[in-house]
């Protein structure tokens, strides 16, 4: 089968339509992952063992099982108990929570990397807990986290094709429907690959720059 440029230009608008959804899902998912991850990291540090142990186990469980199955679970099981979600919302929640368990580890490592002396000094200077976090701990903990967080952001972007399995009309799904209705797989599938590859390569350059700017965090 030959590569057909006319077909490529014909399907491009549909693919770009899907690509917009891919970007939207990535950005929303990243927002969920950033917030939920922080909550998980804070709960993991809880002095109550029941809370920290439970959160630890749940994170471990989510990290040890496939995102695809979790997406099915959210999309098919939750409606049984009366929670109906649109495919995109279910996908964003699924991917967001999955990656939150990874970002939580980044937050945890970042916070633990702040030397004990800083906490003690804050206490000695009579800062309140919120002041300690906002003015002392977070300004030191956040910059080293940025490259690691960006890394997961890219990973998330690459995982969004899974959303096609729960009928989100993102790039991969558009490509599949084009392929199935035209019986041509080579152009749509290759183009999806190229789309992802180009964005990933650009983001790898961006990531290198971030790593140089903010010293790499050893994990």
């Amino acid at each position: 089968m030959e590569w057909d440029w006319a077909f490529v230009w014909q399907i491009m608008p549909t693919l770009l339509e899907g690509f917009k959804i891919t970007i939207l899902a990535t950005v929303l998912g990243a927002a969920v992952a950033a917030v939920v991850g922080l909550l998980l990291a804070i709960m993991r540090r809880s002095p109550i063992p029941a809370v920290s142990r439970t959160v630890g186990f749940v994170s471990e469980f989510i990290r040890g099982t496939p995102l695809l199955v979790q997406l099915y679970f959210i999309f098919y099981v939750l409606p049984d108990i009366g929670i109906r979600l649109s495919p995109l919302v279910a996908g964003v929640i699924g991917i967001g929570i999955h990656y939150a368990t990874y970002t939580a580890e980044v937050y945890r490592a970042g916070i633990e990397n702040v030397p004990r002396g800083q906490w003690e000094a804050a206490k000695a200077a009579n800062l309140t807990t919120p002041q300690t976090w906002v003015h002392v701990i977070l300004p030191q903990a956040l910059p080293p986290m940025i490259p690691a967080l960006a890394n997961y952001f890219i990973a998330m972007f690459k995982e969004t094709p899974l959303l096609s399995a729960i009928t989100v009309l993102e790039l991969m799904n558009q490509a599949k429907s084009i392929a199935n209705s035209n019986y041509r797989y080579i152009e749509p599938m290759t183009l999806v690959g190229i789309f992802f590859l180009v964005i990933s390569l650009i983001s790898v350059v961006g990531l290198r720059w971030l790593e140089e700017r903010y010293a790499r965090m050893d994990d």
Partner: peptide
């Protein structure tokens, strides 16, 4: 390394399964 890290397993699988036969 860059090629396989740059795209996800899903895209690669579909590519291998649908495009290689052609």
């Amino acid at each position: 390394i860059e090629f396989f890290r740059g795209t996800s397993i899903f895209v690669q699988l579909f590519w291998v399964y649908f495009v290689l036969p052609l």
